[in-house]
Amino acid sequence: MYAEAQEAGDAVARQFAANADIVDDLAERLHKHPPRFIVTCARGSSDHAATYGKYLFETQLGLVTASASPSVGSVYAIQPKLDGALFVTVSQSGKSPDLVRNAEIAKAAGAHVVALVNVTDSPLAQIADTVLGLHAGPETSVAATKSYLCSLAALLQLTARWSNDAALFNAVHALPDGLREAWRQDWSPLVDGLVDAHNLFVVGRGLGLGAAQEAALKFKETCGLHAEAFSSAEVRHGPMAIVGPGFPVLAFAQDDGTGDGTVAVAREFRSRGAPVWLAAPGVPGGDVLPTARSVHPALTPLLTVASFYKAVNALSVARGHNPDLPPHLNKVTETV
C-alpha cells in the first residue's frame, strides 16, 4: 500500500499522457452532442471517486449529476430512462457483474457510456463507448490508493478539457508534482492521536466530500477503526450530538466557498474537548495538518487524500494491522 500510494504522482502523469487524445475526442463529441444530464455508477472507493465527479461536473459544467443505484438494474431489473445521458462508470477491475449489467442497460437505453477502468480489456471496458484507462499499473494491495487517485485525475482531465476553463486546464498539469509534494507532508500527529481510537468522524464538503468518504473507508479496512463520513453541513443535523471529549474528528476543508464552514465545525468540535485534526490549505496554526500547495480547489481533494494515504498506512501498522491484507476482503469484489 505504501509503495503504491507513493507512486500516484507518476501514475497520474502517465495517465494524462496516455489519455490526452481520447479525452480530446470525447470532449469534442460532448460539445457537439451535449448530454441532458450525467449519471455515475460505481461501488466502494470508485463510488467515492464518483462523488468527487458529481461535484466537479456540477460546479464546472452546470450539469445535474446523479448516482445510479446498481441494484436497480442488476437485481430489480429496472431499465431507467437514460436516453441522452452521459453514463460514467468507475471500476478498477471492470469485472463487477452489477456494474457491467448497468452499463449494458445504459447503453441500450441510448446513453453514451464512459468507463474509467484500470483493466482496459475488462468486461466493462468492452461494453463502453469510450474507455479512459486509469494507467495506474498493477495494484496488489487490497486497499485501492493510486487507482483511486487516478480515477479522480481522469474525471479532472475530462472536465478541464470539456469545460474549456483555462485556469482548470492549466492546473491539471500541476497535479503530478502536487501529489509528490503531498506525499512528503508529515501527518504523524494524526497517526499518534488515533493509535488507541475506536470511533471517529471524517468531515468534508463539496469537492472534498468524496475525500472524506474515502478516508472513512480506509480507516475501517486498513486500521479496524470505525469511521463515518459526513458533509460538514450534514453533520450538524444530528450526528454532531455525540461529538465531545474522547471522540476524534478529522476534517478536510476546501479552499473554496465551503472551507469556512468546515473550519468552523472543526473549531466547534475542538471547543467541546474533542480531539480534532484539520487539513485546510491556507489556514494557519500549529494544530493544522500540513498540506501541499494547491493551484485550484478541484485539485485539493487529491492532494489531501495523497497525504492521508501515507498517514493511514502508518496508522494501520501502529495498530498492529497489515494494510495490504485487511481481514475478510479481496482485491476484486464481484457484486451482482
Rank of each mutant, 00 (worst) to 15 (best):
T304V: 10
S93V: 13
G137M: 08
E104C: 06
D256M: 09
A8M: 04
P176R: 01
G282N: 09
M240E: 08
V88C: 02
R43T: 10
F57D: 15
T262F: 00
Y76W: 11
P70K: 10
G246F: 09
V249Q: 01
F169W: 15
W183E: 04
L124S: 03
N164T: 15
G285F: 00
P239H: 06
V75K: 11
L179D: 02
S231I: 00
D47F: 06
A166F: 15
T291M: 02
S69K: 15
G62P: 01
V283C: 10
L175P: 00
G224H: 08
G208L: 14
R29W: 13
T130Q: 14
A279E: 00
Q126M: 10
G178C: 03
F252R: 05
F37H: 14
K218H: 08
K310I: 02
G246D: 07
K146D: 00
A109R: 12
E228N: 01
L217G: 01
P326Q: 06
G273R: 05
P123G: 06
V191C: 08
A227G: 12
W187K: 01
A20H: 04
N313C: 15
D186G: 03
A279M: 00
R180P: 00
P239Q: 10
T140R: 13
W183I: 05
Q79R: 14
V142H: 07
D192A: 14
K95F: 13
P248E: 10
D256N: 12
P248N: 11
G224Q: 08
V265A: 13
A50W: 02
I242E: 15
P326A: 12
Q92E: 11
V265F: 08
W183M: 07
A85K: 12
S147H: 03
T335E: 13
W162S: 14
L303I: 11
A314N: 13
Y2P: 09
Q254C: 13
T222N: 09
P138V: 14
C41Q: 03
A229W: 01
R267Q: 08
K81D: 12
V317L: 08
V72M: 05
L63T: 11
D196V: 12
V117H: 01
N164G: 15
A125R: 08
G244T: 07
A211S: 05
P284L: 04
E234M: 07
N199S: 15
V336Y: 14
S141L: 11
P123L: 06
S69F: 13
I22W: 05
L190I: 09
A298P: 07
C41M: 07
F247R: 06
V332E: 04
D324N: 14
W277E: 02
I38Y: 08
T120K: 11
F57T: 15
A111W: 02
S188F: 12
